[in-house]
Design a protein around this nucleic acid. Structure first.
Length: 562
RNA sequence: GCGCUUGUAGCUCAGCUGGAUAGAGCAACGGACUUCUAAUCCGUAGGCCGCAGGUUCGAGUCCUGCCAAGCGCACCA
């Protein structure tokens, strides 16, 4: 909670002596327009409890609230008590605080000595990293930082899809067609994709290929040497190329524990399941409530499924990390799967199943069709990033040809544009992959926020960062808006964490950037009258800091020049 | 057929968990660079919030029913 909001809540709590602070905090809202104040307390819900008209409650409440330095005006309108913050006074408290706390501003101790494990990215290995995987990667990375800001110890887990029937397919394809001429070098990730696509094409004509693939996977699970060597080779090739992309985006993991990691933990998990297992059509299942299909433990050929591995993984993670929360950043199309997995955990008597949460997101589409690896209908993420970086370079040549480290800035901005594009909207929305939109750096985009940050840096370089200033001088409308916005930042982070919704931070950063650019447009800063310049520069520094921090929470870099 | 998700400006989306006059960006049109980075800013235009009921002081937001789109519904992940 921001410092001003905190005092408003406290003032209401004391004057009202009826509701706990928590409830007041929930009721308190930000009015739709600035001339209605900065915080507003609606009295409608109290009307029943107090058996009085809202307007009367509001009036009496307002009268009981003592004078406070922070809010210089309280007004009653239509059953609302509106608080107007004294921005000068607020700035005097807030800006030094932001300066001091820097990247720690808005941190919470909510998660002190608790951990949250976040399962994200988790691409299928032996397949190229496509833009479809971008979503989980970028959202999960941002959530990791957001939860860290909430004080939690975060375990970033890349649950690589490095086990399963698809390996049977690739092995089969590689053995049968791997030596045929290809435009890609043998065994490379693009070559493997080519084989994978061909497998599906041929399997459509000849379904017995699917049996062959299942057989190869079964051999792999049974420890067949030939299958294992090929699997290892494919895994390494894929992982190497994955890590390259992660490095480009500045994304890291604490654990690369993929599905294969749980192989030796499967028997233990199955043993726990034993009392609930049934045989059905040759397969082994656990029946769940009527509204859900049964959970498959083992296929009729005895091989395991990814659900079984998810189960073993959840148990392992609880034992190893004692998580307070486990998040699965996985597409919405797997909602039923996770519902089943959590239900099975519950059935096993694990109460912590309630702390497991599927964090779904919408599909990435390309034109009318779903991107499908099987049909070879993929857009490689590395190609997208390369194109974005390329475009950024040409923009730099045009706008700022004397820039020092062009390569590095082009990478940060190009990659930032792609990542921001994925974080801007509520994650549940489907995304249409549009080159034009992705490569447009104007308006609500990552580069816009980064540009604003660079602008602020540039001002500070020119005017310097004052140690102190008379911040009561910040009385212009554009300045007040910025101060109020900076005060709300802690709330924004908390809200983003609560909803596992990075877009909350993205939207906030856009709004802050917009307000800053208006301010920049309307007033001289570095060359204003000395005392005013000092106050404004301190405000600029506060904005610079909070934009940098917002971008950090989104997992995006903030170059000082661009 | 059943379940989940989504429907808000021409397009892409916000809308603080039921509050005040529904807001941004893109695209279009018209303006602002001898001045701190124009990747910017200002202005104009654009709306039966899918449709119909209901709940109450009050509904884009909650409930019910339709309509439309997407995703799922045991041996893929």
């Amino acid at each position: 909670m921001g410092i001003a909001k905190e005092s408003v809540v406290e003032a209401i709590e004391n004057a009202l002596a009826l509701l706990p602070a928590k409830e007041i905090e929930n009721l308190l809202e930000v009015p739709p327009s600035a001339d209605l104040g900065d915080y507003s307390f609606p009295c409608f819900t109290l009307a029943k409890k107090m058996r009085k008209a809202p307007a009367i409650i509001a009036k009496e409440l307002a009268e009981k609230i003592p004078q406070d330095d922070l809010f210089n005006r309280i007004e009653v309108v239509n059953g609302y008590v509106n608080f107007y913050l004294d921005k000068g006074h607020l700035a005097n408290k807030l800006l030094p605080k932001i300066k001091k706390e820097a990247m720690k501003y808005g941190q919470s101790d909510e998660g002190k000595s608790k951990s949250v494990v976040i399962d994200f990215s988790s691409p299928n290995i032996a397949k190229p990293f496509s833009v479809a995987h971008l979503r989980s990667t970028v959202i999960g990375h941002s959530l990791s930082r957001i939860w860290e800001h909430m004080g939690y110890k975060v375990e970033r887990i890349n649950h690589l899809g490095d086990w399963g029937t698809q390996f049977g397919k690739v092995i089969y394809a590689y053995k049968n067609w791997g030596d045929e001429p290809s435009s890609y070098s043998k065994g490379s990730i693009r070559h493997l994709l080519e084989l994978y696509v061909r497998f599906h094409k041929e399997a459509d004509q000849n379904p017995s290929l699917d049996d062959e693939a299942r057989l190869w996977f079964k051999r792999l699970e049974d420890g067949d040497k030939e299958a294992y060597v090929l699997w290892e080779q494919f895994r390494k090739t894929s992982l190497d190329s994955l890590v390259e992309v992660y490095e480009l985006m500045g994304i890291t993991f604490d654990h690369y524990t993929g599905e294969s990691f749980y192989n030796d933990k499967i028997p233990g998990a199955i043993e726990k399941l034993q009392p609930f297992m049934k045989e059905s059509e040759g397969a082994e299942i656990v029946e769940l409530s009527d509204d859900m299909p049964p959970f498959l433990v083992r296929k009729s050929d005895g091989a395991t499924l990814y659900g079984t591995r998810d189960l073993a993984a959840a148990i392992y993670r609880q034992e190893t990390y004692k998580f307070a929360k486990a998040l699965y950043v996985v597409g919405g199309e797997q909602a039923l799967h996770f519902k089943q997995v959590f239900a099975v955990l519950k059935k096993l008597g694990y109460d912590w199943a309630d702390n497991c949460e599927h964090v779904p997101f919408g599909l990435m589409r390309f034109g009318d069709m779903k991107l499908s690896t099987r049909q070879g209908n993929v857009i490689f993420l590395e190609d997208v990033l390369a194109k974005a970086i390329e475009l950024t370079k040409s923009i730099i040549e045009e706008k700022n040809p004397n820039l020092d480290n062009k390569e590095e800035v082009a990478r940060a901005v190009g990659v930032g544009a792609v990542m921001f594009n994925d974080l801007r909207n509520n994650r549940i929305k489907d995304i249409n992959f549009e080159w034009d939109e992705l490569l447009n750096f104007q308006g609500d985009t990552g580069p816009y926020v980064q540009y604003t940050h660079a602008r602020a840096c540039s001002l500070l370089q020119k005017g310097g960062v004052p140690e102190a200033a008379n911040l009561s001088l910040l009385q212009e409308e554009e300045e007040k808006v910025l101060v109020a916005s900076l005060e709300r930042f802690p709330e924004v982070v908390a809200q983003a964490a609560k909803g596992n919704e990075p877009s909350t931070v993205a939207r906030y950063s856009l709004g802050l950037a917009r307000d800053f650019n208006k301010f920049y447009q309307a007033h001289r800063i570095a060359d204003a009258e000395e005392e005013v310049a000092k106050a404004r520069l301190m405000l600029v520094d506060g904005v610079r800091q909070v934009i940098a921090l917002s971008l950090y929470l989104l997992g995006i870099e903030a170059p000082e020049k661009m």
